[in-house]
């Protein structure tokens, strides 16, 4: 319990601190839990997004995520964008809890705005955004109140590609191909095979094709995925997030499947 009435927010501060005894610049701007002794914390994700995939290629970084936000096994929201541009050279893709991700989107937009309003020509690149997210995620896990996400951060900084991962524990790493969630098991081996030998040899079209291939494999195997997805690219020209596109899939093989349920032959 905070015993400084001036910190309670409304009713108006003046009622409790008529003579301004509390120095202006020390006054905290927001208190969220003044009257709350018991606080609710995230114990599990509720509305979730599945895998995010990303690779480095010749001109930069490419990232893909489908448009589904699930409520358990229910395909609840089918038009959700899980790729978020931060400034002009960074893309963040999120799996895990979508409300936590939306909170992070707001925070990221705020720091981009702050950076812009400083008006001194400095801006945040992907490395700074990733470090910032890693510190935030780690701080929240340390309060036992995690932001339930696994995030990929990609972009271009000083002409160099950047791609890194951060999750709800604050664990970080970077590599030339990354995937979160189910994708780390199913798509990442394919991505590594195609990308790791030489990312510089992959053209934009080839990169797009690699991601499409992996999104299709995921759609066949991941029950929480959708055949509608978006691709984001970051090059020296900037960030672009594509319109939602449909996966072409072929379920003909399903007819021939035998050997379970009532179809014994």
């Amino acid at each position: 319990m905070d015993h400084f009435p001036t910190n309670w927010g409304r009713p108006r501060n003046e009622l409790y601190d008529q003579y301004n005894t509390f120095p202006l610049h020390q006054r905290p701007t927001n208190h969220t839990d003044t009257f709350t002794d018991g606080v609710q914390r995230t114990q599990q994700p509720i509305v979730t997004g599945t895998s995010v995939l990303a690779i480095q290629y010749k001109d930069g970084v490419m990232m893909a995520a489908d448009n589904l936000a699930s409520y358990g096994s229910l395909a609840r929201f089918r038009d959700i964008t899980r790729l978020h541009a931060v400034g002009t050279s960074t893309i963040v893709g999120a799996s895990g809890d979508m409300s936590d991700f939306q909170y992070l989107q707001r925070v990221l937009d705020e720091i981009v705005t702050d950076e812009f309003t400083a008006g001194d020509g400095n801006s945040l690149g992907p490395a700074e955004v990733h470090e910032f997210l890693a510190r935030r995620m780690y701080a929240r896990r340390s309060k036992m109140n995690p932001l339930w996400n696994a995030l990929l951060v990609g972009g271009i900084q000083n002409g160099k590609r950047f791609l890194a991962f951060v999750d709800l524990l604050g664990t970080t790493y970077s590599a030339s191909s990354l995937a979160t969630g189910y994708g780390a098991h199913i798509a990442l081996p394919i991505l590594r095979q195609d990308v790791d030998p030489n990312p510089d040899a992959i053209t934009e079209e080839a990169a797009r094709e690699i991601l499409r291939k992996c999104m299709r494999v995921l759609y066949y195997r991941d029950a929480r995925s959708l055949d509608k997805y978006q691709i984001a690219t970051v090059t020296s020209a900037g960030v672009s997030i594509s319109e939602a596109q449909k996966l072409d899939t072929n379920w003909d093989f399903a007819e021939k499947i035998r050997g379970y349920g009532s179809q014994t032959q």
């Binding site: 400083a118 001194d120 400095n122 945040l124 490395a127 700074e128 470090e131 910032f132 510190r135």
Partner: peptide, 12 residues
């Protein structure tokens, strides 16, 4: 350096 892993811009 802690928050963004970058040297602070001098003017700031």
């Amino acid at each position: 350096r802690m928050q963004f892993n970058r040297p602070i811009p001098v003017n700031r």
